[in-house]
Amino acid sequence: MHGVKRIRYSREALEAKQQRDKAKLQEYLALTEEIISRKKNGDYSHEAFDLTTRMLRVNPEFYTVWNYRKTILVKEFFLKSTPHQINDVLSGDLDMTTAFLKQHPKIYAIWNHRRWCLEQVPEGPTEADPNGWKMANWKKELYVVEKMLDVDARNFHAWNYRRYVLASMPVHRSEQSELDYTTRKIEANFSNFSAWHQRSKVLTTLWETGKANPAQNREEELELVRNAMYTDPFDQSVWIYHRWLIGEGSDATILQAEISSIQELLDEQPDSKWCMESLVHYKQLLLRNHSAIIGAEDRQVVKTSCLDLLLQLQHVDSERKNRYGDLAVRIRDMDI
């Protein structure tokens, strides 16, 4: 159970509640029994289907009942119906699960049933337009999932479903429009790491398929990230994303530019843990990958500044002081 406040009932209140629930309980147990016995008898009738609807309204987590519902559709309904009727009943189930999701946005079983329904949509409405129904349904899916993300922009069920929809749509949407979507989500709330994560995936695809220029993108991304850092230097989402942008730090110019830009921010925000932590990380990359371009004297300066920062971090961010201690030992022992 998550986020359910503890309630203290007086004895009278508890008895009254149990009395009230008694009828509900009897009804629930009777319904369970009826469904289970019909299922055992291989009853795939309309009535059985309607009973599953009744049950799932009360308990959308009862996976056995979802399974039974799917079985009724596959073993009976689909065999005896026209494609039109099949499409109608699946649309009905999609509408039903939309309503369920509004109430229970994090129940796996509901999302799964939705996915299953979409995959069952038959070809039609006509031979000339075999993708018509599919298209109509998939387009609606993107709309539904956006509504879900409007309500909770971190709901990972919705994000996973979104990626699934984007990958499965009969006609693909461009990656650029997905990138724009993540921009909107990020601008609405810089701390939405789910959107930053999605952005890293979309950009990777764009680069791998040659649809965008990594160097140009990286510059734009660094600009976006800088805005976010200045807006809230204590929010970790943006710093984690920044680390992805820099990667192994193979580009010395970018690495050095980012180090001085973070140093500037640290000067303004002297207690920013993320500034210090990131500086240590990027300076370490500098020492490891570009020691040739910085002179021996400077290497010692960089090393000493890392050790200083780690010492401060042990105080500013004491939960992780042992990590900073371990890093300090490693940097001290670095052969430079």
Partner: peptide, 16 residues
């Protein structure tokens, strides 16, 4: 596996 070192529920999913 994601760039942050973590793993998600399926390929492409955010680390959790």
């Amino acid at each position: 596996r994601n760039f942050d070192g973590g793993f998600g529920a399926i390929i492409g999913a955010e680390s959790h």
